[in-house]
Amino acid sequence: MLGRSRNHSGVWQTTLAAGAAWAMLSMHAHAADVLPGAYTALPADKNVFQLFYTHTERNKQYVDGHSRPIAARVDSDIFQLRYHHFMEMGGYIVNPNIIIPYGQLEGKRDLSAFGKSEGLGDVVLNATIWLHNDPKARTYFGITPYLFLPTGEYDNKERLNLGENRWKFALQGGYTTAISDNILFDLTGDVTVYGKNNDFGAASAKLEQDESYQVQTYLRYKFSPSFEANIGLSHVWGGETEINGVKQRNELRTTKYLVGAAYFFRPTTQLLALFSRDTAVENGLKESGKLVVRFTQVF
């Protein structure tokens, strides 16, 4: 339940300096990733505290669907604190919440010149409104706007940054339903709109980016009321960038699979783990492995 982890997109350049600046943005992946059961609503007046840990390893760099002949490696370790409050507004359940990320990025092997960055990431404000909320049938449909604030650590002279130095807005819709007593289905789709970064790279260039899109889906199997396993797929496309008005021909087209499990130690305390891996990348760094661990406490 209640899981979204955020992330962004990147650009590629033919020179080392511009390529490093591209990698700076690619660390955050995609703006509105969700975890299984994210669109399951809770009753009004419930509060939720969540702690996320995400470790990601990227071991290949792709341009136009082809792997570059370098030993690429960029690792990241990100922690996120998230607080939700569920309330009723106009007959609908709404959960305004805030996400505060902190972590580090490090270039390795042939990308060791990228160095290491540590600090605060871009804070995210969002709220889901459930337009359909039927706990008895276990069927839900909600809409979520996200606002990404340019609060993260950013230095245009550095090759890796936790922040993007730009505003972003994403709009997502999510649907969850029970297929049978033990099987549930999740489907989400979103679009992300990017603001400008007027201090991009060492030359303080202007970075602009087209809208990007994402579709995600999960099947969840409940072995018991407290334990479930899941499998999922995600596909991202769009998001071509411009630097000082020059199109970079680096449109995203990334597909990945996800597999994980979640367990309620008690009715209000859950631990979730999810592993994912990119299977196809058109442009950007390929995630060879990503592990998300999330602790949830409802009160």
Rank of each mutant, 00 (worst) to 15 (best):
I179S: 08
A17R: 05
K247I: 13
Y146S: 04
L291D: 01
G103A: 01
K108A: 04
S117K: 08
I143E: 09
G289M: 05
N59L: 03
H132S: 06
N95M: 10
L252G: 07
Y140G: 00
A17I: 15
R159C: 03
V11H: 15
F227W: 09
S5I: 12
K206P: 02
D45C: 04
Q297C: 07
K60R: 09
G19P: 04
Y39Q: 13
D75G: 01
F227K: 07
F299G: 01
A20R: 14
P96E: 12
G152E: 03
N97Y: 09
K46E: 15
G289A: 05
D122H: 00
Q50L: 15
G121K: 03
V259L: 15
F114I: 04
L291P: 05
I98Q: 02
E158I: 00
E282S: 12
D33A: 11
D75C: 00
L147F: 04
Y62T: 07
V94Q: 10
F265N: 05
K206L: 05
S276Y: 00
N165I: 01
K116F: 04
D278R: 03
E158L: 07
D181K: 11
A229L: 11
V193R: 08
A137Q: 02
H66E: 12
T151R: 06
G260I: 00
F264E: 10
E282G: 01
E158R: 12
D278K: 04
Q297A: 07
R109A: 11
T15Y: 00
V34A: 14
V74G: 00
S26R: 07
K60H: 13
A202W: 14
I98W: 13
F49C: 08
W12Q: 14
Q248T: 06
E57K: 10
